[in-house]
Simulated assay, not measured.
Amino acid sequence: MDKTAVELHSKGTITISINWNQYDRQRAGGMLTGLLNKDSGDIDCDTSAFLVKKNNKEMFDIIEVINYENPTGINSVIVHHGDNAVKGGEKEQISVNLGGLSEGDAVIITLDTFKDKNQVKTGKLSHISISINDSESKTELYGKSFSGMGDKAISIGKIICNEGKYYYVHELKALNDVKKKEDIINVIRKRRH
Rank of each mutant, 00 (worst) to 15 (best):
E7Y: 04
I18W: 00
I94D: 04
S147T: 11
I184A: 15
G143W: 05
G30V: 06
V6T: 04
E136K: 14
T139K: 15
K91W: 00
K91Q: 10
H80M: 04
I185Q: 13
I78L: 13
D39L: 13
A49T: 03
A106H: 01
S40P: 06
A85Y: 11
L51H: 14
G88E: 03
T110M: 10
G143A: 08
V79E: 06
H193S: 07
D44T: 13
K181F: 09
L111Q: 07
I66N: 05
M1T: 04
I184C: 14
E7K: 06
D105R: 14
D134M: 06
E136W: 05
A85N: 14
D183C: 15
M149N: 08
D42W: 10
D42N: 14
E136L: 13
E103Q: 12
S145I: 01
K144M: 00
I94W: 11
V65H: 00
H193P: 01
L35F: 14
A5G: 13
I43C: 03
S147W: 06
D39H: 06
W20H: 09
L8Q: 05
V169I: 15
N55W: 05
K54W: 04
T4F: 14
N118F: 11
K138N: 11
E140V: 10
I159Y: 07
Q22S: 11
I63R: 10
G104T: 10
E171N: 13
I128S: 03
V52W: 00
S129W: 02
I132A: 00
S17W: 01
K87D: 03
P71E: 03
S76K: 15
G12V: 08
S135R: 05
R191D: 04
V77M: 13
E7D: 07
Y23E: 02
E92Q: 08
H9G: 12
V77G: 08
H193K: 12
L36P: 02
Y168C: 05
Y23I: 06
G99M: 13
S155N: 11
E58G: 15
K181W: 07
G88F: 06
I16L: 13
N67S: 10
N162Y: 14
G157L: 03
K54D: 04
I43K: 00
D46H: 14
A49S: 13
S102E: 07
L101W: 12
K91I: 05
L51R: 15
R192F: 01
D112S: 15
R192V: 07
S126K: 07
V77T: 14
G148C: 03
G104K: 15
E140W: 08
I132V: 02
K180A: 15
D42E: 12
Q26K: 10
K181S: 14
S145E: 00
Y167K: 01
E69M: 14
K173S: 12
K180L: 10
I63Y: 04
L98E: 05
L35S: 07
C161P: 03
I18K: 04
V120P: 01
C161Y: 01
F114T: 02
H127F: 10
D134P: 01
E182N: 11
M149Y: 08
I159K: 08
I184T: 08
Q22P: 05
S76Y: 13
G104L: 09
Y23A: 05
I108K: 06
A153Q: 05
T33E: 08
G89D: 02
D39R: 02
G100N: 13
T4G: 12
Y23T: 04
S131P: 04
S131C: 08
K165F: 09
I63F: 02
D24I: 13
